[in-house]
Simulated assay, not measured.
Amino acid sequence: MGMERRLKVLSMNDGATAMETDTRVKAAFASSDMKHIDQHFGAAESFVVYVIDPREQHLLEAIQFARLEMDGNEDKLAAKISALEGCDVVYCEAVGASAVSQLRAKGIQPIKVGAGTSVSGLIRDLQRELRDGPSAWLARALAGRDPGRNRRFDAMEAEGWSE
């Protein structure tokens, strides 16, 4: 089972935005109307994906899948997880244990929210968190983008530095 449609928003002028790359988050939302969370991850028919920084948000893409039953079929997860590659977080009404482990293995944090939660409200919450200080999962996501970040300590130790 693959995706049916994928609409990707391309900027005409990539330099026009001043998004802060070190605090930018790519977030997916399981939403049929692009406004509210209303789908279980495994049975989601669509996701809307935004790139978000402390001050701005931009619609990146909308992804649609064929209608599926929530039958425990693991095959449906692979296409969804693949489509969300590069995302830091996915918000949904519910998510099964298998999907959670597969998403986390790809560096995507699944977050369960109440049915009808607004996408715009979640974006504002993420922006506030990016400005005021990230939660544990968000701090890990941001730090995980720069695996060489802690190499400086290895270099200091090689030079003879110690505590």
Rank of each mutant, 00 (worst) to 15 (best):
R149P: 04
G144Q: 09
D71W: 04
A66R: 05
I63T: 00
A28Y: 07
G42S: 15
F47M: 05
H40E: 07
R140E: 15
F153V: 06
F41N: 04
W137M: 08
Q109E: 10
E56C: 06
Q64A: 05
G116R: 02
A141F: 07
S31I: 04
G107E: 00
D53G: 06
R55N: 04
F153C: 09
D22V: 02
S101G: 06
G160D: 06
E74D: 14
D154R: 10
D33L: 12
A155P: 00
V9P: 01
V119M: 01
A30D: 01
E61D: 02
Q102E: 08
S162P: 02
S82W: 13
A99I: 02
K26M: 15
I111V: 12
S98T: 13
K35E: 15
T23D: 00
L68R: 11
M19W: 03
V119K: 01
R151K: 08
P134A: 12
I111K: 14
E69Q: 15
A62K: 11
V51R: 02
R24M: 08
G72T: 03
R124F: 02
K106D: 11
A136P: 15
S31W: 00
G15K: 15
Q109S: 08
A141V: 09
W137Y: 14
I81H: 01
I111F: 04
K106G: 05
R152A: 12
E4V: 14
A115F: 11
D88P: 00
A105V: 07
N73T: 06
D33E: 05
S82R: 12
W161N: 08
M19K: 12
L77A: 03
S162M: 12
L10Y: 08
D146Y: 10
F41H: 01
S162Q: 13
E85V: 09
A141I: 05
G148T: 12
A30M: 05
K80A: 07
K112V: 03
H36G: 02
L77G: 00
G144N: 15
E74V: 04
G2P: 13
G114A: 09
V119R: 00
A155I: 09
V49I: 09
L122V: 06
S120K: 02
A79C: 03
V51N: 03
R145W: 06
D154A: 08
G2C: 05
M3V: 15
D33G: 08
T21L: 15
G42T: 14
F29H: 01
A43E: 10
A79I: 01
R124W: 02
A66Q: 10
A43D: 04
K112L: 03
S120C: 11
R67S: 07
L77Y: 02
W137E: 10
Y50L: 06
K26A: 03
D14Y: 07
G144T: 06
S32T: 09
A99Q: 02
P134H: 11
F41Q: 02
L59A: 09
A18R: 13
G114E: 03
D22L: 10
G144E: 11
K106S: 08
L68I: 12
N150Y: 11
A141Q: 07
L142Y: 00
A83V: 02
P134F: 13
R140I: 13
S31F: 01
G107C: 04
G114L: 07
N150I: 09
G72Q: 03
A143G: 14
Q109N: 10
L130N: 03
N150V: 14
I81T: 08
R104D: 03
S46N: 05
S31K: 03
L77F: 05
S82D: 13
G116Y: 04
